[in-house]
Design a protein around this nucleic acid. Structure first.
Lengths: 367, 367
DNA sequence: CCAGACAGTGTGAGCGTTAACAATGACGTA
DNA sequence: TACGTCATTGTTAACGCTCACACTGTCTGG
């Protein structure tokens, strides 16, 4: 309501109704609003916090004064007196991996909806010292809870001996830890992917794993092994990458030379991309000669050459659940640490289905 | 220093030196530290802020008390009294595009180094109302400045009539606006890319542009046009995508059918990926028949099929400069709005260089 | 031997807000 | 008429910190 043209150009300060008190350079406070509206500051506070028992006429007078002065509540003062900052911290790995970024967005969005602010700290490295530092930073900043989006294989213990009284939710924490967490059932996804590769009659499935200190990697290795065991086929030694296309490419250069390799389950889509590249260079046809499945379902996966079969994780959902759990902990402390599990889903595309008609974009379910 | 085992399990509260005052459930305040150290709260404050004129012995006694009590300064109180929150806000587009995410990390990192906190707000959509809302949110949260990482073609005007007194830096703002900004010289990069494609003797270069409301798109179109004009060749009508691989694929399906298309400059690497896919499906060989160059140099670009020539932007640098400019504005207000320009760099790979030996990974300069 | 400088420390006020309680007035009921 | 009740408003005291200042003492130089 109230459409005022910005005709005044430079000045949008009070400019009127200023009874020549003093040269206030400060931002208007509750007091200023109260004075202009002819009420006490407490009444202004009541209007601000939607208390009942404020007469309608008073309320609108106060609201008018607020707009007139361009009043904005001072969150520091509010935080100080209430003891609540309505801010959550997010610790993310400072990389540009798709998963963490997408999760981050889910967190951000959910927090906004719940009227919480988000304070981010990127992690330079993943050792426990960095994690502790990051938590300390956030604690000092006054956050009421922390979401950790980082591989915490080695670092989840760091959280254990944290001198921390603040609620924490960890993404893909190790199952054994007793921290609240939201986890994607990596093993399940990996098992489905592996079964899918086996079902086409391949003798066994090789694996390019993620870094050993990521719990995601471990879960995927577990599911892959489980599927191979169930099918009573050999478990080849997994190669290890670092999630990058580059590392996938290097693993691919090794695998491409081995004629017995006919199916590869890559730890994520980026490594799968590198893998495809290497196989292509060595003249190993995908999917006819070698079938490939990735993990994540990044938006580009459907446009790889060939389009990549993969396991889709709903990262936004993960982020949303983190916030839900965290706010639960914040608002009802002492509750037991919950764990929420998200189930990923196999998406089949060309890289694992030999000899069919082109079908790019099919099965992505995103458009 | 001081390695104390967490042997006490649950309690890491004061636990000692508490002269039976009262059952304090609160976090320790400066007063508590002062009492324990036998000094005034002001001395504690001085220690905290590294004031000179505190005797060494006193200082260490205070520091000891802080550790003993697990004291953490209350940033809300500090902000309230100093008027400085040491927090900057970041408005990002809520997508998972590589560029914005990478820039975000640069900002985060630089802010941390400068001892500023970072408050993020993701944008659901890019209309001016969303932007205004986001700024309002951040202002209420008490940030001292804002970095806007979002396409502000339509929204940069939104910032213009903002009732905002807080410093702002916009990434890739339109040159004509008078807001402080850090921009990548899109036109320069695009021109280099186009010239490179022309130098191989292609008759002209087609372009798959990004969304019209992104200033990045406009800059790239401009550079592309400029290069074609300089070479006195026809300027084909640009196709428009939305940065996604999918949209690049669709544009590719159109271009692949036109036999006169022998060189394409894609607005970003993701669209280039879709484009490669489409060309491949239509049997148009890259680079021999059609040469392709992208923009961004995402980490995966070197592993496309074929490896993608592209224009590298240093997103981290952009983020860092944003913070530098912003903090400059914050700490010395009234300064003129600076604009910083980052020059991108052409990275040549196989997709634009016909008939050479395989050279994946070469020219990426990142390992 | 005392003024002045200065290192080191304490005291009081106030930042902008909310919570607790007190005060006012209008209304109905006994 | 008097009294409790309720809606509406004001008053005061925190919250934890920094700033400006006042206060000690110790040392220097005249």
């Amino acid at each position: 309501m109230e459409s005022r043209q910005p005709a005044q150009g430079e000045h949008r300060q009070p400019s009127s109704a200023e009874p020549a008190t003093s040269a206030r350079a400060h931002r208007p406070s509750m007091m200023d609003v109260a004075r202009l509206a002819g009420v006490s500051h407490q009444t202004v506070s009541r209007v601000l916090n939607d208390h009942p028992n404020v007469r309608q006429s008073t309320r609108s007078r106060v609201l008018w004064s607020m707009r007139e002065l361009g009043y904005r509540p001072n969150s520091a003062a509010r935080t100080l007196v209430t003891g609540h900052s309505r801010t959550i911290g997010v610790i993310g790995l400072d990389s540009t991996l798709y998963g963490p970024a997408a999760t981050m967005h889910g967190v951000d969005d959910a927090a906004r909806r719940a009227d919480y602010r988000v304070n981010t700290v990127g992690l330079a490295s993943i050792d426990r010292i960095s994690v502790l530092e990051a938590v300390e930073r956030l604690a000092t900043a006054g956050v009421e809870g922390v979401v950790v989006i980082a591989p915490l294989s080695s670092a989840s213990e760091a959280l254990a001996d944290l001198p921390t009284d603040i609620p924490t939710v960890v993404v893909n924490a190790h199952p054994e830890s007793d921290i609240a967490s939201v986890t994607v059932d990596q093993a399940h996804g990996a098992q489905r992917a592996t079964e899918h590769l086996l079902s086409a009659g391949r003798s066994t499935v090789w694996h390019v794993a993620g870094p050993a200190n990521w719990s995601e990697s471990r879960g995927r290795i577990e599911g892959w092994t489980r599927a191979l065991d169930a099918a009573r086929v050999d478990v080849p030694p997994p190669l290890t990458g670092d999630w990058s296309a580059r590392s996938g490419y290097e693993a691919g250069r090794v695998l491409a030379r081995l004629p017995e390799v006919t199916a590869v389950f890559a730890g994520n889509d980026h490594m799968a991309l590198g893998l495809l590249r290497a196989l292509h260079e060595f003249g190993r046809a995908v999917p006819d000669e070698v079938a490939v499945v990735g993990f994540d379902d990044i938006p580009e996966a459907a446009y790889f050459t060939p389009p990549l079969s993969t396991v889709r994780q709903d990262f936004s959902e993960v982020g949303r659940r983190c916030v839900r759990l965290l706010i639960g902990q914040i608002e009802t402390p002492g509750e037991a640490a919950e764990c929420s599990v998200v189930t990923p889903e196999l998406v089949v595309r060309r890289s694992s289905t030999p000899s069919k008609v082109p079908q790019v974009g099919r099965g992505s379910g995103r458009e």
